[in-house]
Structure formats: C-alpha cells, structure tokens
Design a protein around this nucleic acid. Structure first.
Lengths: 338, 338
DNA sequence: GTGAAAGCGCTAACAC
DNA sequence: GTGTTAGCGCTTTCAC
C-alpha cells in the first residue's frame, strides 16, 4: 500500500512538500508539484482519509439526515446536495431515520457526528430545542432544508405562500367547499410545512370570505396511503367538498385514488391540487404547486461548504420560489377542464 | 474535546483497557467495564473514527454506489441496506452516479474507495472487466445488487423468470401481439435486467408459438419518459399491439400515459404490465411482477458484513423470489377486467 | 521553496 | 485482567 512516504522517497523530497503539492497548496514550485503529481500517479498513491482526518481535524465528509430516502422529495434533495459536495471533493454520509424509531435520538442526541463530519444537512426536520442545542454544540455548520428556524441556516420555500397559491387556484375556479389534507402540526415530526401550509389554506379561505365548516381538514400523514384514507373520509361526507387541497403530491395522489374508488370523476366531481411537483405528478395529470427540490439540495450543500471556507460566514435563510402548474385534476366545480 | 486518555485518567486505568471496555471486547472485568462506561458517559466522550480507522485499518463505513437515488427502486435498496448497516454500527457513504458523467469513472477507476471504506455495495450496475479488476484490487468485500456476475457476491431476482411471468400472463389472457419496452442491452449501462428480461419475453413468445413481428421491441431507457415515448411509437403502428410488457414499472407508467394521450383505453384497447411493484404502481392500478426491493438491500448489506466478520466467507449468489400482482391494467384483448 | 519533527487519538502486540 | 509501547499515515508548526 503506497503511502505518502513512498512518493516522497520517489521524488526525493520530504513528505511535507509532497503533502503540500498533492493538496494544491501554495508555496510549492511548479516543477516540484509536477514531479510529485506524476510520481503519485505512477505509484498509484491513494491518500488515507483517516490519517488526513486525524492530522487535520477535517473529514471532508458531510452528514445528510433524512426522514426517509424512499420518498422522492428527500431523494431529490440528497441528489442535489451530493452533486455539489462531490464537485468540491466532499463525501456524503447518509443517515436515514425511517425504519428505526430510535434513530433520531441516536443521531441527534449522541454526539457521534462530532468527530465524524465537517458539516450537517438536516432535511425536513425541525430539531427540538434539545436537538438544536446538541447540533450547535457540534461546532459545525448545519443547514436545515424545509424548516423555518430563525438564527439557523435554512433553505426552503414559502410554505404558506405555496398553500395560498394552491387554495386560491381552487377559489378562483369557483369552489366554495374546499377540503384540506395535511399532517400533524405538533410533535417531533413538526417541520414547518404542515402548519404553514394549513395556515395558508385557512387564510386564503378567510380572505375569500368562505366559511370553513368543521371537519374539512384531515390528516394524511404526508403519505399516499394517508392521503387516500383522508380523502375517503372527506368524500364520504354528506356535504362533500368539491375540491381538495393536499399539502403534498403524494397525499394528492392518494386522494385521486380515493375519488376513483368512490366512483367520482376528477375534476368534474372533485378537483385535487397538491404541492411538490413530484416526478410522478405529470403522469397523474396532477395540478400542483411546484417547488425546486433538487435546487434546495444544491443550495443547502453550497451553504455549508461556504460556512466551512469563509471565515466571516453568517447563517442565511434562503427561500426559493414556487410555481403553480395547472394540469388536469382541477376545474370549475362540476365541469370538465376547458 | 475529551479523548480516550481523559477517560483513562478518570478511571485510573490505561487507555488500552478503556479502549477494550468501550468496544465490548472480552478480557475486561465487568466492574472495570462498568466504570469505564459510566466515566465515558459522564465526561461526554465521543470516539474519533479517524483515529480508530487509522490505528485499526477499519473505517466501519460501507460505500453504496447507486446510479440515481431519485429512482424509487434504488432509494428503497439503499434504505434496506442502511437499516442493517446502522444496526451493526456501520456508516453508509453514498455515491450517486447521476448528474455527472465522469462520476462512474472516478468511483470505479481511481482507488479512492480503498482506504475509505470497509466494503462496497454496487446497485444495478454491471462493472466492466476493468472496473471489476479495480474492485477486486480494493481487497474489500463487494456485493452487487441486480446483476448476475459469477464469482462475485450478488443479490438479485431471476430477471428472465420475472419477464416470463409477465409475458405469460399476457399470453394466458389471449394476447398475440405483445410488445416489449426495455433498455439498451449493451454499453456501460448493461446491468443484467435489460438483456435477461428481453430474453424472458422472447422465449415466452416463442414457447407460446407466437410470431414476433419486427419493431415490437422498443427502448424505454428504464424511465417513465422513455417508456412513454416508446409506447407512443408502438401504439401508433398500423399493427398496434394489444398488450405491452414494460421491463420496469416506471416505463409501464409512461406507457399508460401514452395510451391515454392516444385516446386508448387500458386495458380494453391495450394491456400493460410492468416489473418492480413501484410504490406508485397501486395508484396506477398497474399489474406488475413484484420484487422484494427493500429486502435486496438488507441481504446485500448482511452479505458484506458477513464477509467482514467471517474468515471463511465465500461469495454467494442470492436470488430472491418475484410474484405476479394482477391489478387493473391487464385483461383479455378487447375486454374490461372481470 | 523545502525539511525536520512533533503530534492527531486511537488500536494492537506483547508483556506481565 | 491490565499496562506498556509502538505505531497507523498523514498535516502542521517552525526552522532554514
């Protein structure tokens, strides 16, 4: 296993110079650098991250904590982050919280990340005060995607605005009985989206002067199955809503299925709009409020890397734009789309 | 930053004993272990993976190389692998090949993985001879998911059988013009699935004594968009097929959309069957051949960990079962499902 | 622009 | 059951 000493011996230089040359530091003559690079290449030298990490205190690794990789949204954010990390020579350590209830505690409460990574990306989780405390004790840059947490570096969309856009779209079409499918607005799973989207929905109905009969807000757990169950309850009501705003495309897709099961036509009998622009949304002809998913990952990664490099870096809150994408699951009440 | 020496000093023992106690090695009295654990806890000791890695030559990290995390199939395999790795205290380093054409080369051809990870999981990629050479030179356990590579540890389904199941389902329903949507069977992207599934399709038609008019096999690139384009070509033919077997659910979903665009009813005008049982398949009512995705990840991870632990380990080829899931996109030609 | 030397924080071999 | 002693393979002062 050729090490840096072998290269040093080969070019008849000290390991210090070889190390500097290999890492592209200044203070090495171009001739030397050239010879070192050639030698390293020829000898098949591969640096040891453990040794470099131990000596320098930097691991060139970033932890990405994700609730559930199998959800397209998270996978897409991870992919965006991976791209920029890889570009800059950083590795991505994946912490998937799904499937193990104790995982969240292990990752956040024990400080196992401390000597393991240079920075942390947290996706769609709003750390509790205790968890925030731990995170800051890490003494490492942290960026949170999809949550609103003043004082922390965050990347997200304006969830309330997204919900407003979706709801207003339904209002503008002439709907008056508009139901909402969302998720729990409290508990450990409260990232920002559930409450902010609910708020946007309510406010928009308010502004439109629409009454909000009780029972038109259901919990769909941000999954397709949950959305289906929620929609089944909503659509079975005597005062059936003519439109449903689901706070995520996956729940909206579940709602579409519920409608079909009940023999209801979409959009003639019920309009459905979601949020995300999930990769499958277009195959369902789903009207939705698109958000830049991949881009959020890129921005978040760029952010922590900047924090690692710049001395005078301060946490920034980035808000990315959303856009209504009208497809074929929404129309005026009782009408086919024109 | 408290290190192992602080703990050693605290319990008045050597760092060697503390190290042994912390790692649960035998040869430490229970009393000592107890005191060490308590002390470590109290002092907030966190081990340094870099130091441990340097000293032991083990990183307790496994690389997972995936073509594209945003594809549900890969994300699900990753999730399965992550679960068992995490259980056993291993970290997962994600290498996503999508989005960077040079990534594959960098990961396989340079030996950057060598001192970085203890083992490697490769998903749905069939390494070229050169890449295989590099991989074995790593001197680390490697398991390949979704490819058939004698001599290597692999986990997969019987792709030819899966294709046979799907095709025979269509034959049994009475279809005679059955088209196929698959992917390139050569080039760097040739994992086993494309060619094996094509073979299964052809063989089944043969056995059924069905002629295979040319032009009924199309490339859908294993994506929904590709499947849609392929189906558009197939369904525009004068001798329109009455059924389509798509080698992945994502392509099948694209085919469903193509049918809808052309005003064709599914399954009355055209039946469609896929492979995978994608999480969205049931929302499309898609008939498919289900494979245990998550489980393949678990088995693969279990395999490399076994290789790491057992001295007398030999590469094993694991084949997991598939199962036909009949939903509503297939029927007798010209008929609604009964 | 380059080198010498001192670690980084652990683990492992061997001694007792 | 526990301690001593060498490193693991780099990076980083501090000299020159």
């Amino acid at each position: 296993m050729t090490g840096i000493r072998d290269v040093a011996r080969d070019v008849e230089m000290s390991t210090a110079t070889v190390s500097r040359a290999l890492r592209g530091l200044r203070g090495v003559s171009e001739t030397t650098r050239g010879r070192v690079l050639e030698s390293a290449q020829r000898l098949g030298y591969v640096p040891s991250p453990s040794a470099a990490g131990l000596a320098s205190g930097q691991t060139r690794t970033v932890a990405v904590i994700v609730p559930r990789v199998t959800q397209w949204f998270f996978a897409a954010v991870v992919q965006g982050a991976e791209e920029v990390l890889r570009e800059r020579g950083y590795d991505l350590l994946l912490y998937n919280l799904a499937g193990d209830p104790s995982a969240r505690h292990r990752v956040f409460e024990t400080s196992l990340l401390m000597k393991r990574v240079d920075a942390v990306l947290v996706l769609s989780l709003k750390p509790s005060p205790g968890e925030r405390d731990r995170l800051s004790r890490l003494g490492r840059p942290v960026t949170i995607v999809g949550a609103d947490l003043p004082g922390w570096a965050t990347v997200r969309i304006d969830d309330e605005e997204a919900a407003t856009t979706a709801t207003r779209h339904l209002v503008d079409l002439g709907h008056e009985r508009i139901a909402y499918i969302g998720g729990a607005t409290s508990g450990v799973l409260d990232f920002t989206a559930p409450s902010a989207r609910l708020a946007g929905y309510r406010r928009t109905l308010d502004r439109a002067g629409l009454e909000q009969p009780p029972g038109l807000e259901e919990d769909g757990e941000f999954t397709a199955a949950g959305g289906q169950a929620a929609a089944l309850r909503l659509l079975a009501r005597p005062d059936r809503p003519t439109a449903i705003f689901a706070a995520s495309d996956e729940m909206a897709i579940g709602a579409l299925r519920a409608a079909r099961e009940l023999g209801l036509r979409v959009p003639e009998d019920v309009s459905v709009v979601g949020v995300d622009d999930h990769e499958m949304a277009r195959y369902f002809d789903l009207t939705t409020v698109a958000q830049p998913v991949h881009e959020q990952g890129r921005v978040a990664a760029t952010q922590v890397l900047a924090a690692l490099t710049d001395d005078d870096w301060t946490p920034e809150q980035v808000i990315l734009p959303t856009e209504l994408v009208v497809r074929r699951t929404t129309s005026r009440p009782g009408q086919t789309r024109t």
